[in-house]
Protein backbone atom coordinates (compact mmCIF):
# COMPACT_ATOMS: atom_id res chain seq x y z
CA UNK A 1 0.00 0.00 0.00
CA UNK A 2 1.37 3.40 -0.95
CA UNK A 3 0.46 6.69 0.66
CA UNK A 4 -1.76 7.53 -2.31
CA UNK A 5 -3.61 4.21 -2.32
CA UNK A 6 -7.37 4.61 -2.72
CA UNK A 7 -9.66 4.11 0.22
CA UNK A 8 -9.83 0.48 1.29
CA UNK A 9 -12.88 0.73 3.53
CA UNK A 10 -16.54 0.61 2.67
CA UNK A 11 -18.22 4.02 2.56
CA UNK A 12 -21.58 3.50 4.22
CA UNK A 13 -23.27 6.50 2.60
CA UNK A 14 -22.13 5.38 -0.86
CA UNK A 15 -23.19 1.81 -0.09
CA UNK A 16 -26.64 3.06 0.81
CA UNK A 17 -26.85 5.05 -2.39
CA UNK A 18 -25.76 2.01 -4.40
CA UNK A 19 -28.35 -0.17 -2.67
CA UNK A 20 -31.06 2.43 -3.19
CA UNK A 21 -30.78 2.28 -6.99
CA UNK A 22 -32.75 -0.88 -7.53
CA UNK A 23 -33.27 -0.79 -11.31
CA UNK A 24 -33.57 -4.36 -12.57
CA UNK A 25 -32.83 -4.74 -16.29
CA UNK A 26 -34.90 -7.12 -18.43
CA UNK A 27 -33.60 -10.68 -18.32
CA UNK A 28 -31.10 -11.54 -21.05
CA UNK A 29 -31.89 -14.24 -23.59
CA UNK A 30 -30.52 -17.78 -23.30
CA UNK A 31 -27.85 -17.32 -25.95
CA UNK A 32 -26.66 -13.99 -24.54
CA UNK A 33 -26.35 -15.64 -21.13
CA UNK A 34 -24.37 -18.57 -22.53
CA UNK A 35 -22.07 -16.17 -24.38
CA UNK A 36 -21.45 -14.29 -21.14
CA UNK A 37 -20.28 -17.57 -19.60
CA UNK A 38 -18.13 -18.11 -22.69
CA UNK A 39 -16.59 -14.68 -22.00
CA UNK A 40 -15.83 -15.87 -18.46
CA UNK A 41 -13.91 -18.80 -19.98
CA UNK A 42 -11.95 -16.44 -22.21
CA UNK A 43 -11.04 -14.26 -19.22
CA UNK A 44 -9.62 -17.29 -17.45
CA UNK A 45 -7.44 -18.09 -20.43
CA UNK A 46 -6.34 -14.45 -20.49
CA UNK A 47 -5.35 -14.51 -16.81
CA UNK A 48 -3.69 -17.94 -16.85
CA UNK A 49 -2.41 -18.52 -20.39
CA UNK A 50 -0.17 -21.33 -19.09
CA UNK A 51 -3.25 -23.54 -19.00
CA UNK A 52 -2.99 -23.74 -22.80
CA UNK A 53 0.28 -25.67 -22.53
CA UNK A 54 -1.55 -28.99 -22.38
CA UNK A 55 -3.50 -28.00 -25.44
CA UNK A 56 -0.45 -27.04 -27.49
CA UNK A 57 2.45 -29.24 -26.33
CA UNK A 58 0.66 -32.58 -26.40
CA UNK A 59 -0.39 -32.34 -30.09
CA UNK A 60 3.13 -31.28 -31.07
CA UNK A 61 4.57 -34.34 -29.32
CA UNK A 62 2.02 -36.58 -31.01
CA UNK A 63 2.92 -35.33 -34.47
CA UNK A 64 6.65 -35.62 -33.95
CA UNK A 65 6.49 -38.99 -32.22
CA UNK A 66 4.21 -40.74 -34.66
CA UNK A 67 5.80 -39.28 -37.76
CA UNK A 68 9.43 -39.92 -36.94
CA UNK A 69 9.15 -42.94 -34.64
CA UNK A 70 6.57 -45.03 -36.47
CA UNK A 71 6.44 -43.37 -39.88
CA UNK A 72 9.22 -45.32 -41.55
CA UNK A 73 8.05 -48.66 -40.20
CA UNK A 74 4.35 -48.16 -40.90
CA UNK A 75 4.40 -46.46 -44.29
CA UNK A 76 7.90 -46.87 -45.70
CA UNK A 77 8.82 -43.21 -45.33
CA UNK A 78 8.12 -40.47 -42.84
CA UNK A 79 6.73 -38.13 -45.47
CA UNK A 80 4.28 -40.72 -46.81
CA UNK A 81 3.14 -41.53 -43.26
CA UNK A 82 2.78 -37.86 -42.35
CA UNK A 83 0.46 -37.47 -45.31
CA UNK A 84 -1.66 -40.37 -43.96
CA UNK A 85 -1.53 -39.70 -40.23
CA UNK A 86 -1.83 -35.92 -39.93
CA UNK A 87 -5.63 -35.70 -40.32
CA UNK A 88 -5.88 -38.54 -37.78
CA UNK A 89 -3.69 -36.74 -35.29
CA UNK A 90 -5.80 -33.65 -35.80
CA UNK A 91 -8.81 -35.73 -34.74
CA UNK A 92 -7.00 -37.33 -31.84
CA UNK A 93 -5.55 -34.21 -30.26
CA UNK A 94 -8.72 -32.18 -30.49
CA UNK A 95 -10.85 -35.05 -29.21
CA UNK A 96 -8.44 -35.57 -26.29
CA UNK A 97 -8.85 -31.92 -25.36
CA UNK A 98 -12.54 -32.55 -24.60
CA UNK A 99 -11.51 -34.47 -21.47
CA UNK A 100 -10.19 -31.21 -20.05
CA UNK A 101 -13.67 -29.71 -20.31
CA UNK A 102 -14.85 -32.34 -17.82
CA UNK A 103 -11.83 -31.74 -15.61
CA UNK A 104 -12.40 -27.97 -15.63
CA UNK A 105 -16.07 -28.37 -14.77
CA UNK A 106 -15.27 -30.76 -11.93
CA UNK A 107 -12.80 -28.22 -10.52
CA UNK A 108 -15.29 -25.40 -10.94
CA UNK A 109 -17.87 -27.27 -8.89
CA UNK A 110 -15.74 -27.13 -5.77
CA UNK A 111 -15.89 -23.32 -5.91
CA UNK A 112 -18.50 -21.26 -4.12
CA UNK A 113 -19.22 -19.20 -7.24
CA UNK A 114 -21.29 -22.09 -8.63
CA UNK A 115 -23.86 -21.49 -5.90
CA UNK A 116 -24.16 -17.91 -7.06
CA UNK A 117 -24.76 -19.03 -10.64
CA UNK A 118 -27.39 -21.48 -9.42
CA UNK A 119 -29.17 -18.75 -7.47
CA UNK A 120 -29.34 -16.33 -10.42
CA UNK A 121 -32.45 -16.09 -12.59
CA UNK A 122 -30.74 -17.41 -15.71
CA UNK A 123 -31.39 -20.08 -18.32
CA UNK A 124 -30.29 -23.29 -16.58
CA UNK A 125 -27.96 -24.80 -19.20
CA UNK A 126 -26.21 -21.45 -19.80
CA UNK A 127 -23.20 -21.98 -17.48
CA UNK A 128 -22.47 -25.35 -19.12
CA UNK A 129 -23.13 -24.29 -22.68
CA UNK A 130 -21.03 -21.15 -22.17
CA UNK A 131 -18.12 -23.10 -20.68
CA UNK A 132 -18.17 -25.56 -23.58
CA UNK A 133 -18.38 -22.76 -26.14
CA UNK A 134 -15.35 -21.24 -24.44
CA UNK A 135 -13.58 -24.60 -24.58
CA UNK A 136 -14.23 -24.77 -28.31
CA UNK A 137 -11.69 -21.98 -28.62
CA UNK A 138 -9.14 -24.40 -27.17
CA UNK A 139 -10.16 -27.01 -29.69
CA UNK A 140 -9.59 -24.56 -32.53
CA UNK A 141 -6.21 -23.75 -31.04
CA UNK A 142 -5.14 -27.37 -30.66
CA UNK A 143 -6.23 -28.10 -34.22
CA UNK A 144 -4.44 -25.06 -35.61
CA UNK A 145 -1.20 -26.08 -33.90
CA UNK A 146 -1.41 -29.49 -35.61
CA UNK A 147 -2.15 -28.04 -39.03
CA UNK A 148 0.62 -25.45 -38.88
CA UNK A 149 3.14 -27.98 -37.62
CA UNK A 150 2.07 -30.51 -40.23
CA UNK A 151 2.56 -28.03 -43.06
CA UNK A 152 5.93 -27.03 -41.62
CA UNK A 153 6.99 -30.69 -41.66
CA UNK A 154 5.93 -31.12 -45.27
CA UNK A 155 2.26 -32.15 -45.08
CA UNK A 156 0.26 -30.85 -48.03
CA UNK A 157 -3.55 -31.02 -47.98
CA UNK A 158 -4.79 -31.70 -51.52
CA UNK A 159 -7.98 -29.87 -50.60
CA UNK A 160 -5.93 -26.73 -49.94
CA UNK A 161 -6.57 -24.23 -47.17
CA UNK A 162 -10.33 -24.49 -47.65
CA UNK A 163 -10.22 -28.27 -47.17
CA UNK A 164 -8.06 -27.96 -44.08
CA UNK A 165 -10.34 -25.35 -42.53
CA UNK A 166 -13.43 -27.42 -43.28
CA UNK A 167 -11.73 -30.41 -41.64
CA UNK A 168 -10.85 -28.33 -38.58
CA UNK A 169 -14.41 -27.07 -38.34
CA UNK A 170 -15.79 -30.60 -38.49
CA UNK A 171 -13.42 -31.84 -35.78
CA UNK A 172 -14.29 -28.89 -33.52
CA UNK A 173 -18.04 -29.43 -33.97
CA UNK A 174 -17.67 -33.15 -33.20
CA UNK A 175 -15.60 -32.34 -30.11
CA UNK A 176 -18.20 -29.85 -28.92
CA UNK A 177 -20.77 -32.67 -29.05
CA UNK A 178 -18.43 -35.07 -27.27
CA UNK A 179 -17.59 -32.48 -24.61
CA UNK A 180 -21.17 -32.81 -23.29
CA UNK A 181 -20.35 -36.42 -22.41
CA UNK A 182 -17.25 -35.35 -20.51
CA UNK A 183 -19.20 -32.63 -18.73
CA UNK A 184 -21.55 -35.32 -17.45
CA UNK A 185 -18.54 -37.41 -16.40
CA UNK A 186 -17.06 -34.33 -14.73
CA UNK A 187 -20.27 -33.88 -12.74
CA UNK A 188 -20.54 -37.51 -11.68
CA UNK A 189 -16.96 -38.33 -10.66
CA UNK A 190 -15.56 -37.05 -7.39
CA UNK A 191 -12.19 -35.56 -8.33
CA UNK A 192 -10.52 -33.89 -11.33
CA UNK A 193 -7.94 -36.68 -11.55
CA UNK A 194 -10.68 -39.32 -11.65
CA UNK A 195 -12.22 -37.45 -14.60
CA UNK A 196 -8.85 -37.26 -16.34
CA UNK A 197 -8.05 -40.95 -15.84
CA UNK A 198 -11.55 -42.11 -16.65
CA UNK A 199 -11.65 -39.92 -19.74
CA UNK A 200 -8.42 -41.23 -21.21
CA UNK A 201 -9.22 -44.81 -20.25
CA UNK A 202 -12.06 -44.60 -22.75
CA UNK A 203 -10.46 -42.36 -25.37
CA UNK A 204 -7.14 -44.20 -25.67
CA UNK A 205 -8.59 -47.53 -26.84
CA UNK A 206 -11.17 -45.72 -28.99
CA UNK A 207 -8.43 -43.75 -30.71
CA UNK A 208 -5.93 -46.58 -31.13
CA UNK A 209 -8.58 -49.06 -32.28
CA UNK A 210 -9.46 -46.75 -35.12
CA UNK A 211 -8.03 -45.87 -38.52
CA UNK A 212 -6.18 -42.87 -37.07
CA UNK A 213 -2.76 -44.55 -37.17
CA UNK A 214 -3.08 -47.56 -39.44
CA UNK A 215 -5.05 -48.56 -42.46
CA UNK A 216 -7.61 -51.08 -41.10
CA UNK A 217 -7.28 -53.31 -44.20
CA UNK A 218 -4.33 -55.01 -42.49
CA UNK A 219 -6.34 -55.86 -39.36
CA UNK A 220 -7.86 -59.26 -38.41
CA UNK A 221 -11.65 -59.59 -39.03
CA UNK A 222 -13.32 -58.94 -35.63
CA UNK A 223 -10.95 -56.08 -34.83
CA UNK A 224 -11.57 -54.60 -38.23
CA UNK A 225 -15.33 -54.77 -37.68
CA UNK A 226 -14.94 -52.73 -34.50
CA UNK A 227 -12.62 -50.22 -36.13
CA UNK A 228 -15.08 -49.70 -38.96
CA UNK A 229 -18.00 -48.75 -36.67
CA UNK A 230 -15.88 -46.77 -34.22
CA UNK A 231 -17.10 -43.14 -34.49
CA UNK A 232 -13.51 -41.94 -34.18
CA UNK A 233 -12.74 -43.86 -37.41
CA UNK A 234 -15.71 -42.31 -39.13
CA UNK A 235 -14.60 -38.86 -38.03
CA UNK A 236 -11.02 -39.54 -39.16
CA UNK A 237 -12.30 -40.73 -42.54
CA UNK A 238 -14.45 -37.61 -42.91
CA UNK A 239 -11.56 -35.37 -41.88
CA UNK A 240 -9.15 -37.06 -44.30
CA UNK A 241 -11.66 -36.73 -47.11
CA UNK A 242 -12.11 -33.01 -46.51
CA UNK A 243 -8.37 -32.39 -46.36
CA UNK A 244 -7.90 -34.43 -49.51
CA UNK A 245 -10.42 -32.24 -51.31
CA UNK A 246 -12.76 -35.20 -51.91
CA UNK A 247 -15.46 -34.89 -49.22
CA UNK A 248 -16.98 -38.22 -48.12
CA UNK A 249 -20.60 -37.13 -47.62
CA UNK A 250 -21.63 -40.18 -45.62
CA UNK A 251 -18.75 -40.01 -43.16
CA UNK A 252 -19.30 -36.28 -42.67
CA UNK A 253 -23.03 -36.72 -42.12
CA UNK A 254 -22.48 -39.60 -39.66
CA UNK A 255 -19.88 -37.56 -37.72
CA UNK A 256 -22.23 -34.59 -37.44
CA UNK A 257 -25.12 -36.87 -36.46
CA UNK A 258 -23.06 -38.50 -33.71
CA UNK A 259 -22.10 -35.05 -32.38
CA UNK A 260 -25.71 -33.86 -32.46
CA UNK A 261 -26.91 -37.08 -30.84
CA UNK A 262 -24.40 -36.85 -28.00
CA UNK A 263 -25.29 -33.21 -27.35
CA UNK A 264 -29.03 -33.93 -27.49
CA UNK A 265 -28.78 -36.78 -25.00
CA UNK A 266 -26.21 -35.29 -22.65
CA UNK A 267 -27.30 -31.64 -22.56
CA UNK A 268 -30.39 -32.36 -20.44
CA UNK A 269 -28.55 -35.00 -18.40
CA UNK A 270 -25.69 -32.64 -17.69
CA UNK A 271 -27.99 -29.74 -16.88
CA UNK A 272 -29.86 -31.87 -14.35
CA UNK A 273 -26.62 -33.14 -12.81
CA UNK A 274 -25.31 -29.58 -12.56
CA UNK A 275 -28.37 -28.52 -10.66
CA UNK A 276 -28.45 -31.41 -8.25
CA UNK A 277 -24.83 -31.67 -7.26
Amino acid sequence: MTATAPRTDADTAAVRRAIASTARPPRPGPLATALTFGWRGMLKIKHVPEQLIDVTITPVLFVLMFTYLFGGALAGSTSAYLQYVLPGILVMSVVFTTVYSGVALNTDLTKGVVDRFRSLPIWRPAPLLGALLGDSVRYVLAGTVILVLGVALGYRPEGGAAGALAALALVVVFSFGLSWVYSAVGLVLRSPSAVLNGGFMVLFPLTFLSNVFVDPRTLPGPLRAFVDVNPISVLATATRSLMAGAPDGTAIAVSLAVAAGLAAVFLPVTTRLYRSR
Binding site: L43, V48, K111
Partner: peptide, 21 residues
Protein backbone atom coordinates in the same frame (compact mmCIF):
# COMPACT_ATOMS: atom_id res chain seq x y z
CA UNK B 1 -16.96 -17.07 -1.18
CA UNK B 2 -19.42 -16.95 -4.05
CA UNK B 3 -17.12 -14.96 -6.31
CA UNK B 4 -14.80 -16.26 -9.01
CA UNK B 5 -11.27 -16.29 -7.62
CA UNK B 6 -9.71 -16.54 -11.06
CA UNK B 7 -11.24 -13.28 -12.26
CA UNK B 8 -10.60 -9.72 -11.08
CA UNK B 9 -13.00 -7.99 -8.71
CA UNK B 10 -14.29 -5.80 -11.51
CA UNK B 11 -14.77 -8.73 -13.89
CA UNK B 12 -16.78 -10.51 -11.21
CA UNK B 13 -19.21 -7.63 -10.87
CA UNK B 14 -19.46 -7.08 -14.63
CA UNK B 15 -20.12 -10.82 -15.06
CA UNK B 16 -23.02 -10.75 -12.60
CA UNK B 17 -24.35 -7.54 -14.15
CA UNK B 18 -24.29 -9.08 -17.62
CA UNK B 19 -25.97 -12.26 -16.38
CA UNK B 20 -28.73 -10.17 -14.84
CA UNK B 21 -29.32 -8.40 -18.14
Amino acid sequence: ASVDEELTGRENLVLVGRLLG
